[in-house]
Design a protein around this nucleic acid. Structure first.
Lengths: 226, 226
DNA sequence: TGCATCGGATACGTTCATGTATCGAAAGCC
DNA sequence: GGCTTTCGATACATGAACGTATCCGATGCA
């Protein structure tokens, strides 16, 4: 459960009324943090760098956050939640296409952003050192699966396939996503990498589902789904 | 191409004769670096932490390395080369087993070490910011594939399967390895994670190979390979 | 064993980031 | 529009990490 917005900024006592500008500065600091962390790395980033980027001085930072660690966590939670929303929206947009097109559309809608990748890779590594952060990451991955799986399972069913072990498929999809994201970023210009990525997703979808006994005979597919 | 050992330690001119203890200190610094980076994170680690851990003062460090970045690179190259050797050895040990056992044996032989994972995740993120480091990482991944693929392809052939696109299989295996390694570290006690990991590897091996037309009819397998 | 070179320890000075305490301007309430 | 509260700016003190210049014990060679 994330920290409530009030308690984070406690100076002496919690402020009785919160002004509008506070929200703006907090947002700008969070945005600046992503950029700075991505460019410099979390460990090398300083409070002043972030404030400068956001257009403030350190006073603004210490009025809004206790430490860089707290900002790091807040930023990660916000961005990863946003990414999850984007994912949800992208999946809702391409519900009825056949598997191959659906996968390509979904991958195109969730571009691999290298700034975010760098930051989240570092955050994951950081979380492995800190039990409470570790739990946060695990919970987020669970949320991702809870979002993705129903859509994917439904889409596969429309294509006449049944998923025997949804949890296994969920983990496999996440692993493939993460693993191939690195490859995409390492060789950003290679079209082959993107194709292999999409192909791997398709293979996984195929491997984790079986042709369902047609309750009502489905429209015979012109090409086999594999 | 890694830097030659001499040029790294140039003080005024390259030393004419190199003593034995220099090798020891360099090694201890490299070993200490892995530990410290894993515990503290690369960006937060200091020269003094590493020297203290290794049992030296900063003088030893600056006599052997120019900067923390150089040490980071040297350490990564050494460890990842060592890991590649271990992998080679592990693959050589289990050549003739059927796919399922072979995969499990290989995964057991290459345990997911969290210290190394943390460090290499950070290194990868770091490399994405630095073109020359990026090339180093790409080259290393290529080397891994060149090591793994022949063995895997041969093993599959013994099992009566042919690999159509070895490069695609190589990338898929690396992606799956990296992606599932995180999951293993995030939930170290869950046996299910390990099983899903092995299953995913098997699925990939299966998806990227096809039953080969038997040149000589193979001994009929009692159970199907999948 | 004596001697020249090497390699790590020590001792600087400097820079940089941190966190706090205080001040003044902007924002909300009447 | 005056008054109070909030919030970010400023100033300051402190500590930590850096990199270098120098010194002296260790090491290898004859």
């Amino acid at each position: 459960m994330p920290t409530t917005p009030e308690q984070a900024s406690a100076r002496h006592a919690a402020p009785q009324r919160v002004t509008a500008r506070r929200g703006r500065t907090r947002r700008r600091l969070l945005d600046a943090a992503l950029e700075v962390f991505a460019e410099t790395g979390f460990g090398r980033s300083t409070v002043e760098q972030i404030c400068e980027r956001a257009g403030y001085t350190r006073g603004a930072f210490y009025s809004n956050f206790v430490s860089l660690d707290e900002l790091f966590l807040a930023m990660w939670e916000e961005r990863s939640a946003r990414m999850l929303d984007d994912l949800r929206a992208a999946l809702a947009d391409v519900p009825s296409a056949p598997p191959r097109e659906a996968v390509q559309a979904a991958l195109a809608a969730i571009p691999v952003e290298d700034a975010w990748y760098r930051v989240s890779a570092e955050f994951t590594a950081h979380a492995l050192r800190n039990p409470s952060l570790r739990d946060v990451v695990v919970a987020r991955e669970q949320a991702i699966q809870d979002t993705v799986l129903p859509v994917v399972v439904a889409a596969l069913e429309r294509a006449g396939r049944r998923v025997a072990d949804p949890a296994a498929l969920g983990h496999a999809l996440v692993a493939v996503h993460d693993g191939t994201a690195v490859q995409v970023l390492l060789e950003p210009d290679a079209a082959a990498v993107h194709e292999r990525r999409a192909a791997l997703f398709l293979n996984v979808l195929d491997a984790y589902s079986t042709p369902a006994p047609p309750d009502r005979p489905p429209t015979a597919p012109p090409t086999s789904p594999s």
